[in-house]
Simulated scan of single mutants.
Amino acid sequence: MRVSRTLLATILVTVALIVQVTVLARLGLPGATPDLLLLTVLALALVYGHVGGCLVGFFAGLLADLAPPADHAVGRYALVLCVIGYAAGLTRPETGQHRSATVPMLVVAAGAASSTLLYAGVGALVGDTAARDVGLGSLLLTATLYDLLLAPFVVPLVMAMARRLESDPLSGEHKSGGGGGDSAVSWLKGGGSPRGRGPRRIRYGKAARLGGTRSTLLSRSARNRAGRIKGVKRL
């Protein structure tokens, strides 16, 4: 990733993690906790694509694994957010921008549900049964609901900040195409360019060749007539 992308992703992920730990984790909501870090990763993946989303997700998950309140194995959430960021980046259109908010909201819902399932699945592999004790169905429902309620306030803002640092390739092509169009118009107008005077020289050359051919034919016919006249006089 470029330096601007890396700097922005680092700042946004750090701020999201601080708010997650100091504010959202202490609300005491029933079930799961709103995952601001997940929403930040999803928003950046929707702008940066699957490669950027994968890298941002791994970095964000690793920070969450190393944060002081974490009570799970290091690398567990990094793996989850890495996969989620990669999958979310695959939904990025070729134009770089979604036409409506339907796709981002579907990505948020799928990301919230998938992250909960993946986190619980990885925990089951390493022997963590906390999700089983709390209830996986309750965690899945509340995590999806909280993230969907928080997404309209987070995802558009993060995506707008990320797009400001992105260069628009269509604008550069448009500028270069516009310059070519202006020069083409000036050439068509014949404003001092060689191409404007080219057709005139070609026409002038053709006229000269035609004129030379005509003058040669006229001289030959005149000579023939003069010979005939001389012959008549001699007779």
Rank of each mutant, 00 (worst) to 15 (best):
G179E: 10
Y86P: 01
V56Y: 06
T22N: 13
A113L: 14
K175A: 14
A101Q: 02
R195C: 03
S176D: 04
K206F: 07
L37H: 00
L46R: 04
D133M: 07
L27N: 03
I18Y: 10
D128Y: 15
E166S: 01
L29H: 15
N224V: 10
R209S: 04
G49S: 04
V47G: 02
S215M: 08
H174M: 07
G53Y: 04
L42M: 01
H98M: 00
A43V: 01
P30E: 01
L66Q: 03
A184E: 04
G135P: 02
G190I: 00
L118W: 00
V13T: 15
P93R: 00
C54A: 13
T216Q: 14
R195I: 05
G180Q: 14
T213N: 07
G111W: 04
I202G: 03
T129C: 09
G180L: 15
L55E: 05
L29T: 05
R234H: 12
L150Q: 09
G190R: 04
T33M: 15
K175R: 14
H174W: 07
L188I: 09
L44W: 10
T91A: 08
L139F: 09
V51A: 15
S219G: 10
I202P: 04
A143H: 09
R76A: 08
H72A: 10
A43I: 00
T14H: 07
L66S: 08
G52R: 02
R225Q: 12
A131H: 03
L136K: 08
P34I: 01
R76V: 13
A208Q: 03
G123K: 04
T10K: 03
A207N: 02
A207L: 08
S215I: 12
R76Q: 09
L141S: 08
I84A: 09
A130Q: 03
T102L: 06
A208H: 06
W187T: 03
W187S: 04
L106N: 13
R2W: 14
I84W: 06
S167D: 15
